[in-house]
Design a protein around this nucleic acid. Structure first.
Lengths: 139, 139
DNA sequence: GTAACTATAATATTATTTATTACAGTTATA
DNA sequence: TATAACTGTAATAAATAATATTATAGTTAC
């Protein structure tokens, strides 16, 4: 899974926990600890899907536009990391029975695995993540 | 998942399909299409776990030492890629409620996810992979 | 004794990820 | 209405991770 997923989950949780649910990319970036340009790139995906709205100009930023308990981690996985479970198959030898067929043979397994991962991640929402964050902070 | 998994699965399938079930690293490497030194590195892990035996010297190589229908992909995943599902959390800000707790909050989710992945991969053996390779080759 | 092999460490190369810079466009507000 | 605070996005640079290569020592069949 790639770290755009981390950025998406962190950003949504961050916005959800703010009283006014809006923050500019540099503030979000400071919480996630990545570059603001990267935050904007990932959040632009979330904008397209309507999870957040972006406001340009002064006092702008990214504003939550969804119910935290309605957004599942599965959706964010698909948006940011779909297909990332399968490892690389670096040009196996086409002259060889195994080499020429193994990637396609494994593809079916990995497609189902992705579905498994999806159905598990569907059990968790941004609201759940926030709950866990709060529980963790009380430890 | 990292590509050492690919190398492990490919190598075991490759050995299993050979009449004498033995081959040197450079032959395996030619089928997988990676460097022989890398094959030896990954296969040395499989040796330690007893899946194969290595024979040094002339006419040596790696010899299968297990029943292909008894080795599950789960075992090979754990050996080569355990923990690789979880994305990176690049030093989130310790001054922030979200930043200081999100990685630990997510850890629980990813631990369970790994277990899910494991239990799915347990459904497939090297023998199954070989079957699929053969079916694929007849398409 | 030699050729064919494994084992493994050290280094180099390549690919991927991430950060940075740059700049055009938008908007609140002084 | 000028300016500061923003987003959007492309281009480039830097850092990191993955992979290959080189080197060397040890083993074994013949």
């Amino acid at each position: 899974m790639n770290s755009d997923f981390t950025i998406a989950v962190h950003s949504l949780s961050y916005l959800a926990h703010l009283p006014d649910r809006i923050a500019p990319s540099d503030r979000i970036a400071a919480s996630v600890s990545v570059h603001p340009v990267r935050v904007r790139k990932v959040l632009s995906l979330l904008c397209k899907k309507g999870y957040i709205k972006s406001k340009e100009g002064a006092k702008g930023g990214f504003e939550l536009n969804c119910a935290p308990d309605q957004v599942t981690l599965d959706e964010l996985y698909l948006l940011t990391s779909e297909g990332s479970i399968k490892p690389k198959f670096p040009n196996p030898n086409p002259q060889c029975l195994i080499g020429s067929n193994i990637e396609k043979a494994m593809d079916g397994i990995f497609i189902d695995l992705e579905a498994q991962v999806g159905s598990y991640l569907k059990l968790y929402t941004i609201a759940d993540v926030l709950d866990r964050v709060e529980k963790q902070s009380r430890k």
